[in-house]
Every structure is written in C-alpha cells, then in structure tokens.
Design a protein around this nucleic acid. Structure first.
Lengths: 341, 341
DNA sequence: GCGCATTATCGAAGCGCTTCGACGCATCGC
DNA sequence: GCGATGCGTCGAAGCGCTTCGATAATGCGC
C-alpha cells in the first residue's frame, strides 16, 4: 500500500507538501497540486487511518448508538440506521454501529480509544444515561429525539407537539368533532417515551381548544393489537368519525384490515390520518393521508449537527422539524350519522 | 485521556512492560502485572486506537458489507446486522457498517486505509463483485452465503440443498404426494439468487426421487402477493395437501390469511412447513413447523471465520450448516380427499 | 561456585501522518 | 532601493503504540 512518502517522491515534493495539498490548510501552487494529485491517482494512495488518527487529526468515523429493544420495530430501526450511514458517507465519514447492550459502553469505549470523532444517538429514552455520558465525555454528538430538559446538546426531532396539533386541525377543519387515536404499543408508553408524550400533549391540547371529543388506545404490539384497538376505540367513542394513527405499520395494518372487514369505507365512513408515519403510508391496503416522519431529514441533520460540533462550527442546538401534510384522500367531511357494523 | 505512558509511570515500569502485560506476548511477573492492572483501572486507561493501528497491530474493527436492495426485507436484514455486531463484540471487535451503494467501494476504502482487519460480506449475489475484490485485496473475510464456484474464501450458509430435501422428506413421510411451494418474490429469482437455486435444486430433486408432484409460485412482494400465490398454486396443483414456504414473513402472512379465509385448517386440511424461516414461525397467526434459518449461527460463524483468518489460524473454508426441524404441529397426514373452497 | 538457560524488564526504533516554525523568493509600498 | 509582507515549500517533531534486541536477575546442574 502506498504511503504519503511514495506520493511525495513520485511528485518530487516533501511529505508535508502532500499533506497540505490534501488538507488545503496551506496554499499550494496549482502545478504542484496537479503533480501530487496525479501521483495519488497512479499510486491509488489512501491515507492510513491509524496514522491520521494518531497525528491528532480526524478519525473520520462516527459512532451510531442504536439500541433496539425487544419491542422495537425492526423496519423503522433499519431505516434510521441506513439513513444515518448514508448521511455520514456524504461527508466521507464511516459509521461504527453500536447495538445490543453496547450502545452505552460502546460510546465510552470508542471515545476513550479516540476511535470516533462523534456520536449519533438513536432511540433516545426519556431518561437516557447516554445524555450525561456524552456530556461528560465532551464528545461531539447529535441526538435523534429530544431528551427532556436538555438544551446544551444537539438534538433533532419532528415537532411532535405540533404534529399532534396539526392532526387535530386537519380533521377538525374537515368537520370532525370526535377523533379516535391508535397509538404505539403500550410498552412504549409504559417507558414514558418522550415523543409519544409530546404528540399526546399537542393533540389533547388542540382537541380541548377546539372542543373535539377524543380517546386513545395503546394496543398490544402487532397486527392483532391494531384490530383490537380499533374495536375498543369504537366502544369508547361510539360517535367517532375520524381516526388518527400514531404507531408503526403492523398496528396500522391490523386496524385497517379490521375496518375493511367491518365494511367501512375510507374516507366515506371514516376519515383516517397516519401521523408521524415512518412507513410508506401510500402503500397500505388503503393509502392514507399522512404527516410523515421526516426520517431522512432527521438523520441527515443529526449527522450534520454532530459534524458541525466536530469542526467547532457553532454551538449545540435543539432542532424541531415542522410537520408537513401529505394528502392521499383518506380524509373527508363526516357523514351526518354513521352506524358502525 | 490516559496513555500507556501514564500507566507505566503509575506502575513504575516501562511502557513496553505495560504493552506486554496487556498483550501477553511475553511473560510478566504476577506482581508486576497486578500493579499494572491496578494503574489501568485507576487511570481508566484505554489504548489509543490510532496508535495501535499504526504500530501495525490490529484495528479491532471488522467491516460489514450489507447491501440492501429496494426489494430487501428490512427485518431480516436488521437481524443479520444486529447478529454480526453482537458476534463481533464478543471478540472485542467493532463493526463498521457499509451500506447503500458503498458496500463495494467501502470495502476498498476501509482496506486501503488499513482501517479494518477483515470484512463480513452479507447478501451475497450469484455473481458478486465483492468476491474478486476481497480476493485481490487479500483481506480476511467471510461470506454469508455461498458464491457459486468459490472455494478459496470462507463462506457460510445454511445447506439449502439439504433443507429443500428435508422439506420434501418431512412431508412425504407424513404421506403427502402433492406439495406446493410459495417462494421468495420473483424479483429475487430474476436475480438468480444462489440460495434460492440451491433450495429449489434439492427440493425438486427429492420430489423427483420420491415421485412427489410439486409446483412453485414466486409471488409479488408483500402480503397480497402471498395470498395470490396461494390461489394460483391451488389452481396449478388442485390435489395439493401440503404447502412449503420459502420466503419472508409478509408473504407467509398473506398466504396464511388467505388459507384461513378459505376456512381451511392447518394441519387438518393442509400441512404447512416454513422452510429456511428467518422469522419466528411460532408467532404467526398459525404457528408453523419450521426448518429455521440459523441466522445467529451463520453470523457468529462468519465473524469467527473472518477473525480466524485475521489471526492466520487455518485456511478459508466453506461451511454448510445442516438444517434442523422444529415441530409445531402444522404437519399431519393428508386427508383422503380435500375439497378446497 | 561457575556457566548456562530462563525469566523479567527496559530502551529505542519505527509505524504514517499532521502541523509548526523556518526559509527562500517574489511582490509591494513608499 | 529597502524592509515588510505573503506565498510555496521543506524539515523535523511528535502523536501512542508494538516489537525487537539487549540486559539484568534468577535458578539450575554438576
């Protein structure tokens, strides 16, 4: 493997000149730079990662702390991971994946070994030990999710509070006054997951402001849970004319299945909105109007925020992404009277 | 951050002694080792990754080349990734995740930069450019999947040929003479995916040997595809008394749904076997007897094979894991005459 | 009690890079 | 025309580790 020395010799310059040509930290004559670049191409030179790290420069590696609980939704999880890797690659960064019981200790290890320049933290819990850990390590970082009360670290997330309000607004303005919600599995809620709390807060608050009746079901995990949740919701809120999903695909699918079994049409008999959807809501049995979870935007911003801190450009900041709405025709005005099967 | 120098001073020895105490490559007096270990604990010393790499030792990093096609099954993909990370961690290795368009160039880059000790290659295609690349780089590696005609590199996979035979054997011995197969989405088959070919080879061969009638459907992706595939299969093979799945969850779920809609009972009306199941076949609508895909075993062996090559212990080898059978009562003797709805 | 093998430890070289200070040279202002 | 300035380049130090002799200390046989 070619070293910087080989390149320097081939180009007839010193190694420091090569280094500066590569980093751009000092000016280099155009002709010299060209000779160097040609040598690099010919020799297929790639800087040695270890040497670069050791010399106190970058490692060009970002850790991704991605815990996956037993009730985690694999497809969503994978989408986040993929998206972070993609974003990192766009900045010539590689990603060290920390998972399964190593999402905390791995951060400590990788940082202590000076193996990483920063960390992107996924699956942030309401009380998350990674917050104080990362703070203590002084490691450039970005959190995907907002740990409550944190304002000295970069965090990015959908504005779930506003998403909740928007959901109500969309439906209320279409004329609905009784809106059911099928939320995430109750095991998520038991953990007091922060984004759920924020969504619920905005949603309930807006309902109150608009005099909308509402009820929420936190189902069992999986499709069956979704179907059951629909039935329970119908009991709880017999005059329900609109339904909001704030959960993952399987539950949505289960509920939609149940709704179609009951012979109900969307949006004729029931208006439906997929809120904070991490999945393609247009590929469901019935395509749903949605407030999408801007997963890619979240991941890309997280990577960029983390790298900005690596470069000491600016301070940590909390970013809330404004919700958007994608109309797929699953929302309409309520029928004067709906008689469920 | 503490360096080896700090440790050496604290323990009153030279840095080489510390290094040898840590690596065990030369004998160290027990008392000295204890002093060193205490110093390490007190100083929370972790060796600098860059320095270690540069000094020509290990990087303790393994790349995972994990391409995910547009039709890839996210949950299965994630299970593989997680399992590889877990296996690597068990050997104090970290994993650099190479994905989305970087699964080939990333190997080259990471290797040229001496950033990794080896690579685990997932999602091996029948003709895979990563095979010659890795061979050319001389990089310790392990392939999850068997690229055809390769015997000079470590590969590991379920013995799909035998799994195909076993599937037939299980059902034929229960008395079935007409077995339908619902396979992977046809886009996988179009790509001439090797493991499908191997399964089909074993399956068809065994059917021929036993005089069993058979037909296969390669459905559209997703649950709907599964349901359609069942109907088509029933047309193609009207006397079918047994069904084998060789596909991912959604297709299985779609087909099971359809079967239950038709009022057919398992195994009363139809015996069903989930072959090479990467999912929990006991958590389906109807729990299915299965030949599980030994995903964890595959990933762990792959990591171990790759690391054995890093340590120059033994030569590359192709490992085929023998299929096993998990009885969940979804196979029974066929009824004398079955009249499908 | 002497030489010899063995064990425990040390010093120093070197891995490939970044970066600091220095130097030579052309350019500029006055 | 002379010092000041800036540009392009070089040499050397140093990052923290592994590893190769070398050396000192110990135990052994006879």
């Amino acid at each position: 493997m070619a070293t910087i020395n080989d390149v320097a010799q081939a180009a007839g310059v010193s190694i420091s000149t090569v280094s500066y040509a590569l980093s751009g930290k000092r000016s280099i004559a155009a002709s010299t730079r060209q000779r160097i670049m040609r040598a690099i191409d010919e020799l297929e030179y790639e800087p040695n990662a270890g040497a670069r790290m050791l010399a106190g420069a970058r490692t060009n590696i970002l850790a991704l702390s991605a815990p996956l609980g037993p009730d985690g939704h694999l497809p969503t999880h994978m989408r986040f991971v993929t998206s972070v890797v993609e974003a990192a690659r766009a900045h010539d960064y590689d990603v060290l994946l920390l998972a399964t019981d190593d999402e905390v200790s791995g951060i400590r290890r990788a940082a202590s070994r000076s193996l990483i320049d920063g960390v992107v933290v996924m699956g942030v819990a309401t009380t998350d030990e990674r917050v104080p850990l990362v703070r203590r390590l002084g490691l450039p970082s970005a959190f995907i999710g907002i740990p409550p009360g944190v304002d000295d670290m970069s965090c990015i997330d959908l504005d779930f509070d506003r998403a909740g309000r928007e959901a109500v607004t969309m439906l209320a303005e279409a004329g609905h006054t009784s809106i059911g919600v099928i939320g995430h599995p109750h095991s998520y809620v038991d953990r007091d997951t922060n984004f759920i709390r924020r969504f619920t807060h905005g949603f309930d608050d807006e309902c109150r402001a608009r005099g909308v009746r509402t009820a929420t079901q936190w189902p069992e995990i999986g499709r069956t849970g979704g179907a059951q949740a629909y039935d329970l919701l119908r009991e709880q809120l017999p005059d329900m004319t609109a339904l909001v999903f704030h959960c993952n695909e399987p539950i949505v699918e289960g509920a939609l299945r149940r709704i179609s079994q009951l012979g109900l049409s969307i949006p004729g008999d029931l208006s439906v909105l997929a809120a904070c959807a991490s999945y393609a809501a247009d590929e469901l049995e019935t395509p749903l109007s949605a407030i999408p979870l801007p997963l890619d935007e979240m991941c890309h911003s997280a990577v960029e925020n983390a790298l900005a801190l690596v470069d000491s450009l600016g301070d940590p900041q909390v970013t809330l992404i404004a919700p958007t709405f994608l109309d797929r025709g699953s929302i309409a005005a309520p029928r004067p009277a709906v008689h469920p099967a």
